[in-house]
């Protein structure tokens, strides 16, 4: 293909974009809105996924023992737990140590716990780690049936709830994106239809002069893709700056919630947005080209 021909396609495409003015702007803006929604929900999903991963890998089982067990009974329990399938580590935390730990976690306000040494309400505890996260529930069930075990905790439901929340965010985000994306495709195809009507005289002449179908179609395809690209670049810029300031803000205000700030992940996400914008543009213009351009 000749450079002159390519230049012709782009010149015609941009002429149409400017001729359609406000409609072009609206189409690009709708693309931007739909991609911002998609980008935000994707970021939420990426972050909750990672959070769920971290929680799962850090889940350990705490088995609280009944008060007043003999050393011998505790050692026996220790052995029983150690040989349960899936258990990799068992750590005994006596009640005194548990109190110390709690003191440390209270930091400067540990005076709240003063006076508890004599009548320590905390139980002796086994902390158990499993090889895999999905073994937690089974191991916990077996431990709870052992004699001398009062209660078993492993953050029941937290992981499951996080997974459910993630799924909902995904569904709602993708649903909203599809709705707004459909609107974007519709607006782009309307824009292209107007361009086709504005140039129908020219198209008729082109056909008489022996223009190939693709020669006639290309400027319209480019017009749609440029609109999609403009919208997606706007969306990518908005998502990027918005997320960056969120990461910065969170790092200061809530450092214990680690946001994904991995450059490669974010770059891939933005690239996906731009690619999708181009796709929306191409689809919108193809619809109009096929419906209104009988070449």
């Amino acid at each position: 293909m000749r450079i002159r021909t390519i230049a012709y396609y782009f010149r015609e495409a941009f002429l149409s974009i400017f001729r359609n003015g406000w409609l072009s702007l609206a189409a690009a803006a709708t693309v931007a809105i739909s991609l911002v929604i998609l980008g935000c929900s994707l970021l939420v999903v990426v972050n909750t996924d990672r959070l769920a991963d971290q929680l799962e890998s850090s889940v350990e089982i705490s088995a609280f023992l009944k008060d007043g067990l003999e050393q011998e009974e505790i050692r026996e329990l220790n052995d029983k737990i150690r040989f349960l399938p899936g258990v990799v580590e068992v750590q005994f935390v006596p009640k005194e140590e548990a109190l110390q730990e709690m003191r440390r976690s209270f930091g400067s306000r540990q005076d709240i716990l003063d006076g508890l040494e004599d009548d320590n309400p905390l139980p002796d505890t086994f902390r158990i780690k499993t090889r895999r996260a999905d073994q937690v529930v089974e191991v916990a069930r077996k431990i709870s049936s052992l004699d001398g075990v009062e209660d078993v905790r492993y953050g029941q439901g937290l992981v499951e709830r996080l997974v459910v929340v993630t799924r909902w965010i995904r569904v709602v985000g993708v649903g909203a994106m599809i709705l707004v994306g459909a609107a974007a495709i519709f607006l782009i195809s309307t824009t292209i239809r107007l361009s086709v009507f504005a140039r129908r005289r020219e198209i008729g002449i082109m056909k008489y002069l022996g223009a190939t179908n693709w020669f006639v179609r290309f400027p319209f395809l480019i017009e749609g893709m440029v609109l999609g690209l403009l919208g997606s670049l706007l969306a990518a810029a908005l998502v990027y700056t918005g997320y960056l300031s969120l990461v910065e803000h969170m790092a200061r205000a809530m450092p214990f919630i680690p946001l994904v700030s991995d450059g490669q992940v974010i770059f891939r996400l933005l690239a996906a947005l731009v690619g999708l914008g181009l796709g929306i543009g191409a689809l919108g213009s193809t619809i109009s080209i096929h419906r209104f351009l009988n070449v």
């Binding site: 293909m1 000749r2 002159r4 021909t5 002449i205 082109m206 002069l209 223009a211 020669f215």
Partner: peptide, 9 residues
Amino acid sequence: FALEVTGAS
């Protein structure tokens, strides 16, 4: 234009 649509240089 007639030459352009044929992809002339």
